[in-house]
Amino acid sequence: MSRRDQIRMTSDEVREYLAGQKVINVASIGPNGRPHLAPLWYYPHEDGVATWTYRTSQKAKNLYRLAQATVLVEDGDSYERLRGVSFEADVEIVEDTAEVTRMGIALMQRYAGAKPGDPVPDELTAFIGGQAPKRIGLVLRPTKTASWDHTKLGSGVY
């Protein structure tokens, strides 16, 4: 078995990893043809992730032009602890205000420590409802995935 095969995560491990992390780095293609990289909060969605952004942001403009992105999530502070997932994604742009509101609430509850299905405070619904018209939702669906988990190698293996 190759080292690459040894560190690859299973589909279940990728889903668990994405559920445990907090920030994705999303690369889209800017108007000059160069990558535009931006960190975003997200929540796991289907086999990918979902998030939102201001509809006038550079990443939104880039994704309207070409609805494709590359996503990176990584952690680890030494070689034997490196873990991560990178995927190329087709991006669905969500403009429906009610759905963007739902997505914003899902994001804010996740980062506040709430569990899916927990009651949504009225104040949060009002706040997100005020933000949603200025934003779009982004659903990033993987088309090609790479993953690595160096902890599978055991300590001292470089």
Rank of each mutant, 00 (worst) to 15 (best):
E13H: 12
V14F: 07
V14I: 11
V14D: 03
R15W: 11
R15H: 14
R15A: 14
E16H: 12
E16I: 04
E16A: 09
E16W: 06
Y17M: 06
Y17V: 02
Y17T: 04
A19T: 11
A19L: 03
A19C: 06
A19D: 10
A19N: 10
A19G: 12
G20F: 06
G20Q: 13
G20T: 12
G20A: 13
Q21F: 07
Q21K: 13
Q21L: 08
K22H: 13
K22E: 11
K22I: 12
K22Q: 14
V23C: 11
V23D: 12
V23P: 10
V23E: 10
V23Y: 14
I24H: 07
I24K: 08
I24D: 06
I24S: 07
I24Q: 03
I24A: 15
N25H: 07
N25Y: 06
N25S: 10
V26H: 08
A27H: 15
A27L: 12
A27W: 14
S28P: 08
S28K: 04
S28Y: 09
S28Q: 01
S28M: 01
I29P: 02
I29E: 04
I29C: 06
I29L: 11
G30I: 13
G30N: 08
G30A: 14
P31I: 13
P31W: 12
N32I: 10
N32S: 08
G33I: 01
R34N: 13
R34F: 09
R34A: 14
P35M: 08
P35I: 04
P35E: 06
P35K: 10
P35A: 02
H36D: 13
L37H: 05
A38D: 07
A38R: 13
A38S: 15
A38L: 09
P39D: 15
P39E: 11
P39N: 14
L40W: 15
L40F: 15
L40T: 15
L40Q: 15
W41A: 08
W41I: 14
W41T: 14
W41D: 00
W41Q: 05
Y42Q: 06
Y42I: 05
Y42S: 03
Y42K: 03
Y42P: 03
Y42M: 05
Y42G: 04
Y43H: 10
Y43M: 02
Y43T: 05
Y43N: 04
Y43P: 02
Y43G: 05
Y43E: 05
H45G: 09
H45F: 11
H45V: 04
E46A: 14
E46T: 12
E46M: 10
E46Y: 06
E46C: 01
D47E: 12
D47R: 11
D47P: 09
D47A: 02
D47W: 02
G48I: 05
G48P: 00
G48H: 09
G48R: 07
G48Q: 12
V49N: 01
V49E: 01
A50F: 00
T51H: 06
T51L: 07
W52M: 02
W52T: 11
W52H: 07
W52K: 00
T53E: 02
T53S: 04
T53M: 01
T53P: 00
T53C: 03
T53W: 02
T53R: 06
T53H: 07
T53Y: 01
Y54M: 02
Y54E: 04
Y54W: 08
Y54A: 09
Y54Q: 09
Y54I: 04
R55Q: 05
R55C: 06
T56K: 03
T56M: 04
